[in-house]
């Protein structure tokens, strides 16, 4: 669609990290608050299944969820907020759930960040306050091993898990497998909800597509290795013979959602899904 000139600007896909979104969002309740980042499509779709609103937003259409003004990385709907500044939404997630806690006692916040965002001081300011004030927030660190083009070896010292732990925040890690992520998220969200305390889950994942549109400088063999560990493959395997039918159904669903989205003719969804 970029080649056709129907999309402009930039985009950060979550291909390879879909399981993070689905696994973390699934156990959440309707009133829970999510803040996300530049790589927010998966989180948003897992929350609202609103393909039409998201695609229209990315295409800059008035019918997009933010009228085409926000675009790919500045999304808002009900309890979902994303912004394109690394770590900048983390304190907002604290503030939102603190305000909500005055109205109801069971909602929690979830803040998605990445390993690259761990370079931002505001993350640690927020962890300190979250622990100090017992804020019911789940920090989700999607560690995809890269901050844009910079590998984690040039970006991060020490241990990721030790960071939340040093603030007295419960932390657990999991792999890139959907069931593993879901099980971890379910138990950690339950902990945050019941104990009214922060927690942190670290998902060891990998981004299979470029950081944004086509700026990939990673080693081919490394990519090949991770493509073999694509969480979507694991989902397919676990579904057995149902997988093909489900995929066809999903593609039809997407096609229906975006058919005629910008008033022009043609099947936009042929290559999506």
């Amino acid at each position: 669609m970029y080649a056709e000139g129907r999309l402009t600007g930039t985009i950060h896909t979550c291909i390879g990290q879909e399981a993070c979104a689905v696994g973390v969002v699934t156990p959440l309740l309707d009133d829970d608050i999510i803040v996300s980042n530049h790589r927010c499509h998966g989180h948003y779709l897992a929350r609202y299944m609103d393909i039409k609103g998201l695609v229209a937003e990315i295409m800059g259409l008035d019918s997009g969820i933010c009228g085409g003004i926000g675009g790919s990385q500045h999304l808002y709907r009900e309890n979902f907020y994303s912004n394109g500044i690394q770590g900048g939404m983390v304190p907002a997630a604290l503030g939102m759930v603190l305000a909500e806690s005055k109205k109801r006692k069971d909602s929690i916040s979830v803040a998605f960040i990445g390993d690259g965002t761990l370079g931002q001081g505001i993350v640690y300011e927020s962890m300190n306050i979250a622990s100090l004030w017992s804020v019911p927030i789940l920090f989700v660190i999607e560690n995809n091993l890269y901050a844009q083009s910079t590998p984690i070896s040039l970006n991060l010292a020490g241990s990721i898990a030790d960071r939340p732990k040093s603030f007295g925040i419960e932390a657990r890690s999991c792999g890139n497998d959907l069931e593993d992520i879901y099980a971890t998220a379910a138990s950690m969200t339950e902990y945050v909800r019941n104990e009214r305390k922060p927690a942190c889950m670290i998902i060891n994942t990998y981004r299979l597509a470029a950081h944004s549109k086509g700026d990939d400088t990673r080693d081919f063999d490394e990519l090949k290795h991770w493509k073999g560990n694509d969480p979507m493959l694991a989902v397919r395997t676990s579904l057995g013979p149902l997988a093909d039918d489900l995929e066809i159904e999903c593609r039809h669903f997407v096609d229906r959602e975006i058919e005629g989205i910008d008033g022009s003719q043609g099947n936009h969804g042929r290559n999506s899904g």
Binding site: P91, A92, L94, G95, M96, A99, E100, K102, S126, I129
Partner: peptide, 15 residues
Amino acid sequence: AAFTGIAAGMALRGA
């Protein structure tokens, strides 16, 4: 930075 951001979150939710 954090407490300004916390206030932002509170304001977004009606405070």
